[in-house]
Design a protein around this nucleic acid. Structure first.
Lengths: 361, 361
DNA sequence: TAACCTTGCACTATCGATTGTGCAAAGCAA
DNA sequence: TTGCTTTGCACAATCGATAGTGCAAGGTTA
């Protein structure tokens, strides 16, 4: 499938220009407020005030300030933020801990997070932890040690463990996407999303209430997962109402692994009596597995199938068949998260944000 | 298309548990080496050495060390990394600046970066800048001010501007994906990739050399972009050789915007004499636009088309028609980047890493 | 002109670590 | 016992900023 492109070697060097070169990496001495004090004839504290904006309240003459500022600019002065952070025990950093980057949802989450953080004058910093609980802890500890001013914990395996760390450090934090019991949490309304998605699947073709009786399935995810269990509940609710009937076999949720999901789909289609007429796949990752199996079915079977995906990926819109998707309101999640963070009330609670239904086409 | 799911409101509160509550956020006083010194009867410097691993060379008795360590553990001591960083003028942080997260390539890049950084005992930190040159500069300055130990600059609009900032700060850095002239750079071998992709498109159906003469097009990207121009060169080289002919109209590269690309595709297909029989789309973003147009064509036209995409997305494999893709060797890029960074030689140069061809199916 | 207020800044402690240096006690050889 | 080396640690300076406080010079009011 993946072919290494035959080049001279796996690695090529070229273009050994020596235009400017960076000679003395270690020699550079960064200019400090003390240097500027020397140069301007003012004291370090005056220089500091002139440059950090507190000069008015410290009653420094405006002309002095301007002079210092121009010298600072000339010398290429940059505030040492570690020193400032140490003194103020704040850093101006806002941290986001996520499981991974290469997933539409988390990628957009990071994107929105950065926008909102910058809007608030914070420097956003993102670290992913690969769903490794220890890595999560270590990362949280590290960020705390750098005195981040706030921490967003998205999709952590153990949010409460991180909460405890934050609490010990007196650090404001929120859980996003996966709730915890020790801090405010913002999550998608998975139940509402699943209800809407399932309804949409029933409504996709006329006469579905009877046609889909016992033939609509929920595929992918883990029943114990908070989000999955809520989604299953929504699915079940609608199926029961529309079909007048619900069997536990209609839920196959034993993981996200694409290969596993593909196998499970295959099993579902084996018995023509009960073969799916509608398939709700939980997450794009599981969906990849579903797709790789559906590709092996005869086109007419696939065409007659109603497919839903609880997650969003733009390319899914261009598949051989229409797919109803649910997209989480990432901007909404982040906005609420910042709101929770800035509110005085830090009692643990859950705020739900409604996702959006993405119709096919 | 996107319907707000009708809930009671856009926002729901629930579950106002008061289990543990975090009362005194501001009150917490973090324990320092001075506290531990008090508790253990040792001096702060001894405590410091006991905890940071330098105790052997400072000739501290092992029993003392153990005692201090156990007290530290009991008190939940965490090193204040800002203080350490200030003193050592190093931070233990490795920074990555990227344009965005929600793109497979950059997402994987961040992922690989984190793995490699952790392997080297660094704390990886990623910030995206939305292709905004000023944001890039600001972010670089901020990271430098936090004394990151190294900086990876991926896909920056102006790598050299960032290089200058780094140089002034004596900071090791590399360019990734987009080369600069002031620092070592690691990039994909776009020419080789385009050559391989174009060849694969010619080889997709027998007798293509004649059939595709004047009917194979390059779509998307900007000719001035470094990567795009290299890819066009590769495309052109193969087309010229296989068709014995190449017209400048066969390249339509005026941006990545999906809507624009869709329009341009439409124009290409208007004249049946010259309508594309093969289409190489540059980047998945442009590909989205191409897809949305192809969806409007009669299925048989699309089926007979040979499609290539210079970029990778797993869902593209499940489209109505086969697509040859090129996937950049992200792990390779990052590995080379770290190598360049740790080498003593900081002269600007370019290292090329071969991408991989992903055959359809 | 005395008493007081305002302006404009300098001095100095402080944040929490690291690190060069000094020095007493213990150990050892002569 | 003397003199020297090693062991084990304490002291104090330092990184670069911020912030509380003090104080002289110039203005104002009575």
């Amino acid at each position: 499938m993946a072919l290494k492109i035959p080049g001279k070697s796996g690695r090529t060097c070229a273009d050994g220009r020596h235009t400017e070169g960076s000679e003395q990496l270690e020699t550079v001495k960064k200019t400090t407020i003390y240097d500027l004090a020397q140069l301007s004839g003012a004291s370090p504290s005056t220089v500091s005030a002139a440059l950090n904006g507190t000069w008015r309240e410290r009653r420094i003459k405006e002309s002095t300030v301007r002079q210092i500022q121009s010298i600072a600019a000339r010398e290429g002065y940059r505030t040492n933020l570690q020193a400032r952070g140490l003194r103020q025990s704040r850093s101006g950093l806002a941290g986001l801990i996520m499981p991974m980057y290469d997933n539409r949802f988390f990628a957009s989450l990071a994107q929105s997070f950065e926008v909102e953080a910058r809007r608030r004058g914070l420097c956003p910093i993102t670290v992913s932890t690969h769903r490794d609980p220890e890595e999560e802890q270590r990362t949280a500890e590290t960020l705390i040690s750098y005195a981040v001013d706030s921490l967003f914990i998205a999709g952590a395996t153990d949010p409460d463990a991180i909460s405890r760390l934050c609490r010990d450090a007196g650090l404001r934090h929120v859980n996003v996407d996966l709730p915890g019991s020790l801090a405010p949490s913002v999550i998608s309304d998975n139940l509402a999303g699943a209800v809407a998605l399932t309804e949409a699947m029933f409504d996709a073709k006329p006469g579905a209430d009877a046609r889909l009786k016992g033939r609509i399935y929920f595929l992918g995810g883990r029943e114990k997962d908070f989000a999955t269990s809520e989604r299953i509940a929504g699915f079940r609710k609608v199926v029961t109402r529309r079909s007048g009937d619900f069997a536990s076999e209609q839920v196959v949720a034993t993981g996200y692994n694409p290969e596993t999901v593909a196998r499970q789909a295959q099993v579902l289609f084996q018995n023509p009596e009960t073969a799916p007429r509608a398939l709700l796949v939980n997450s794009t990752i599981a969906f990849e597995g579903g797709l790789s199996f559906l590709g092996s079915l005869p086109p007419e079977t696939v065409e007659s199938l109603v497919v839903g995906c609880y997650d969003y990926d733009p390319f899914v819109r261009y598949l051989r068949f229409p797919v109803v998707m649910v997209r989480q309101d990432v901007e909404g999640l982040i906005r609420e998260a910042f709101q929770l963070l800035t509110s005085e009330d830090t009692t643990p609670r859950i705020v739900k944000v409604n996702p959006a239904l993405i119709a096919p086409g």
